[in-house]
């Protein structure tokens, strides 16, 4: 199985520890991921601003970069959602179709492809999970409160299996944080207010470590946490699992190499 790691541009430059944790976590789960150096971005910032036409060369570059992999894994549901949903505006060659189908959010990959349902390890903290809209409502990785009261999802299930970890019960389980790509600049006032309200929900309900599967939301929330000097750490969920999961004593993945072709 050839797994290509897509580390979104801002993670590469500003949150390398998230990329490292992603890489190491996959390694602990028996997957040696490859990081193709020529990668840049998925093109979402342009497309969400209305410049889909300008983004097309970036889409093609992404496909060229990753076409040779069985899976493309990224620690960012938003980028994955963009590749899957919005790469429909370039010609649908076999390569484009393959890359769109093969691109996975890290935890979707761990859960759906590797078949991992629990991650043993210890992380004795109260953790607040921020559900990212593109992962939840876009990729359906978690139940939407618009549909059902059941608060269940891939990431919350995995987090609950970690020893010592308690999950914060939030007043608003899945409200948007207000990052929204260029929205965070063009609608600065509303964006900031949304982020402040999300952070406040975590403060009120005792979150020590604020986490999620999408670093872009977390970058925005961390900016607020640090500005307000709140006693709260912000970590990508890959960092939590990677810290919690020291060398696994038994294989946690049910994944069988060689079964890829059948998937």
């Amino acid at each position: 199985m050839k797994v290509g790691l897509f580390i979104p541009c801002y993670i590469d430059q500003f949150y390398p520890q998230v990329g490292i944790a992603t890489y190491q976590l996959l390694e602990k789960l028996g997957v040696k991921a490859d990081f193709p150096r020529q990668q840049t971005c998925c093109g979402q910032p342009m497309a969400n601003t209305g410049c889909e036409q300008d983004a097309k060369p970036v889409y093609r570059h992404f496909v060229d970069t990753f076409r040779g992999y069985d899976y493309v894994v990224a620690p960012s549901g938003s980028c994955v959602y963009h590749v899957r949903k919005h790469y429909d505006v370039v010609e649908q060659t076999a390569q484009v179709q393959h890359v769109r189908q093969a691109t996975y959010d890290l935890f979707d990959f761990i859960t759906s492809v590797l078949g991992v349902t629990e991650l043993p390890g210890r992380f004795p903290h109260q953790v607040g999970l921020h559900l990212s809209c593109h992962g939840q409502r876009g990729l359906h990785q978690a139940n939407e409160s618009e549909m059902t009261p059941v608060r269940e999802g891939q990431l919350s299930r995995l987090l609950r299996t970690v020893d010592g970890l308690t999950l914060t019960e939030l007043n608003r389980n899945d409200e948007c944080c207000g990052f929204g790509g260029t929205f965070c600049i063009t609608e600065e006032a509303v964006s900031a207010r949304m982020g402040q309200d999300r952070v406040q929900d975590h403060v009120l309900n005792g979150t020590e470590v604020l986490t999620g599967g999408d670093m872009s939301c977390l970058m925005h929330l961390e900016g607020i946490v640090r500005r307000r000097q709140l006693p709260m750490r912000v970590m990508h969920a890959a960092e939590i699992f990677n810290a919690a999961l020291q060398q696994p004593s038994k294989p946690v993945s049910t994944f069988v190499p060689g079964a890829v072709a059948a998937l």
Partner: peptide, 11 residues
């Protein structure tokens, strides 16, 4: 552009 495209409206 007055939206984060969170998708809750659609839901």
């Amino acid at each position: 552009f007055a939206s984060t495209l969170c998708g809750s409206c659609t839901d």
